[in-house]
Write a protein that binds this DNA or RNA. Sequence first.
RNA 1: GUGGGUAUAGCGUAGUUGGUUAACGCGUCAGGUUGUGGCUCUGAAGAUCGUGGGUUCGAGUCCCAUUACCCACCCCA
Length: 424
Amino acid sequence: MGLITNAPRGTNDVLPADVYKWHYIEQIMKEIVQCYGFKEIRTPTFEHTCLFQRGVGDDTDIVQKEMYTFEDKSNRSITLRPEGTAGVIRAAIEHGLVNAALPQKLYYFTNCFRYEKPQSGRLREFHQFGVELLGAMSPASDAEIILLCKCLITKLGIKAELQLNSIGCPTCRAEYLNALREYYADKKESLCPMCLTRLERNPMRLLDCKNSNCKSLLVDKTPKIISYFCGECHEGFEKTKAFLDTAKVEYTLNPRLVRGLDYYTNTVFEFIVHDIGAQGTICAGGRYNGLVAALGGPKTCGIGFAMGLERIILTMTARNCSFGECKPCEVYIASMDEKSHEKAFELTKSLRDGGMWAECDLAGRALNAQLKYADKIGARFSIILGTNELETNTAFIKNKQGAKTQITLNESFLQQVQTAVSSS
RNA sequence: GUGGGUAUAGCGUAGUUGGUUAACGCGUCAGGUUGUGGCUCUGAAGAUCGUGGGUUCGAGUCCCAUUACCCACCCCA
């Protein structure tokens, strides 16, 4: 197999046999999110590279080594979106949504691109469902977003662990980072090489290193962000937890939960499953109070989350969750000769005009082969037309078990078929 | 970017210590039987064994390289 017949690495085809799964989860999500007042927004697949450098953060792995960046024919640096939030915020600023009635509630389905090595639950082109709530600062908004997220996955039949943390505002986080650097200052020789660079770039990353030496340095004395919260951050986090408690949302506090995108502040959370491989975060999000301003908009707070749709499907498949039903073909009209074939063609159209999925022969096959095909596509009913049927202007509609009903080939054909179909 | 595993028709597999025209099931297509769908029978198409080198009289089988897929690290949804 050459390049032509191989999809690029890390991309996936969704075949006809599987699309209904996507339709199902998209449908469920739209229904629920509408009850929460969110409106869909669609933004471009590519943006100016600087949007992500500024929005996601120049220091992040995503920007440093995972973006699909190229120059267009006018030498503009363009990047395929590696995530959904930056583009949505850019659009919200550009079109003044952040100056309209606040809070703004936005949702999106989007494909994202990251140059990573593919593995279970990780692709180079993957799909996210995301939600952004702009201009609401109260802890109730944090709780609402988390609640919405939980509601969505629950509706899909997924039980997942919710991990919760707050990483503070830039002010208290700066203090905390200093404390971390100080704590590790005399322990550098015990750190893995990876953590040494983390210590420089993003000390909070040290907290979730899997290296056993690095882990052993995490003890009671290791500074915790909670102890560095300013009054506002402390109170906000407490109230958020209280709202979650009243909504009966269960969560695990994970002081080591850190997010990889620079824009997060305060509340961060993840929904995690353990049965789809190493990449078990099916949904993650948090607050980003500085992002809108950082991108040149008015000072506006925000909070949101994104779900990995491939991971959602992996989880649902692993757990045998329902994806709804795939509707089969309703009626197949078979024909025995040229004349009846013409009639079949005409009648098929009339059924389709009435909103039914109907089929007739398109391959020029013998009657037997037509019926075998009808069976393969799951046709619930068949009608066979031959010289007899055309002469008498009547035919039988038959279900899979062989039960027959006589119908007349007149202007009430559609009605008769509908009656036969619905009464069985 | 770093590691481990895998690679034979559309799919799933067999292929014995290297030995003639690479086998089987499912699927596809054509046809037969049957009362007009399941069932059943017959036949056909479809693989230069991922690709490129090497060893050998001879390679699907052994060696090297390369690519892709799977899994994990890193990181993330």
